[in-house]
């Protein structure tokens, strides 16, 4: 069977996308911080594991242990995360732990030893993808997040890295989600990077009259709606509450 779309693990989001994210595409997940971007990417990876598909996660704003906690929370099966890890279904590239001086070791993780060495990060992503290539299944790829790299290297350098990684992900027939924070980069950098992507999932929030959050989908082939759609995110779950059905009777 040829899988053409990968489920995001969020039912109504899949509906919006006519089944999920087309394989071999790269998607920028863009918006302000703490709004559910990272959760969306984590859930995407968890869903892959549930279906027996391999994943690679690149971490720049948390260590592998922290991320595994998040991943555990988003897994919706009885099976422990360790079971997937033992099979080698998930590989981590941790560009955080060593940099804060932590020397702990988790097998199945690549640790970037030195401070924001973009060449090494790229090589490790390449190795991690090659590790999971042997399953001969669609590979899910998550980058959390491009923006944190800016703490260390210039914004241009961060996007150069993301650009190269997106190419490598495509080469291994992967499907990648890249978190980018709004307000961290110049508009031209974001739009240059957006041009390299096959789509954008954009988040925004409104504070008046009450706090509301919305997302919309740009690119990504056919979708049911391109409008801003309301969703709620409470740190444990992201639920699309707004409506987008075609031909809905108002």
């Amino acid at each position: 069977m040829i899988v053409e779309k990968l489920s995001t693990g969020i039912k109504r989001f899949d509906d919006l996308l006519y089944g999920g994210i087309p394989i071999r595409s790269n998607i920028m997940v863009y918006g302000p911080p703490f709004i559910g971007k990272e959760w969306l990417i984590t859930r995407f990876i968890a869903k892959g594991l549930e279906e027996g598909q391999p994943s690679v996660a690149v971490l720049t704003n948390s260590g592998v242990e922290e991320f595994r906690e998040e991943l555990r929370k988003t897994l919706k099966t009885e099976r422990p995360l360790e079971e997937y890890e033992q099979k080698g279904l998930i590989k981590y590239v941790d560009a955080y732990t060593r940099i804060i001086g932590d020397t702990s070791v988790f097998e199945g993780a690549y640790y970037v030893e030195s401070f924001a060495d973009t060449t090494t990060i790229l090589r490790m992503v390449d190795s991690a993808l090659r590790d999971v290539m042997r399953f001969n299944l669609p590979i899910r790829f998550g980058f959390i997040s491009i923006s944190t790299l800016v703490v260390n290297v210039s914004s241009q350098a961060a996007f150069r890295l993301a650009y190269m990684i997106a190419g490598v992900v495509k080469r291994y027939k992967g499907t990648g989600l890249y978190a980018v924070d709004s307000g961290m980069h110049s508009e031209s950098e974001v739009s240059t990077f957006a041009h390299l992507m096959d789509g954008i999932v954009e988040f925004r929030e409104e504070f008046e009259p009450e706090h509301k959050t919305y997302l919309r989908v740009l690119g990504l082939g056919q979708v049911k709606s391109r409008n801003w759609i309301e969703y709620v995110y409470n740190g444990e779950e992201l639920k699309i509450t707004g409506s987008f059905a075609i031909g809905r009777i108002v």
């Binding site: 924001a116 060495d117 973009t118 060449t119 290297v153 210039s154 241009q156 350098a157």
Partner: peptide, 12 residues
Amino acid sequence: SNLSSVVDFAGE
């Protein structure tokens, strides 16, 4: 060995 690392910090 790798001028790119310098460029990452000191720019193009």
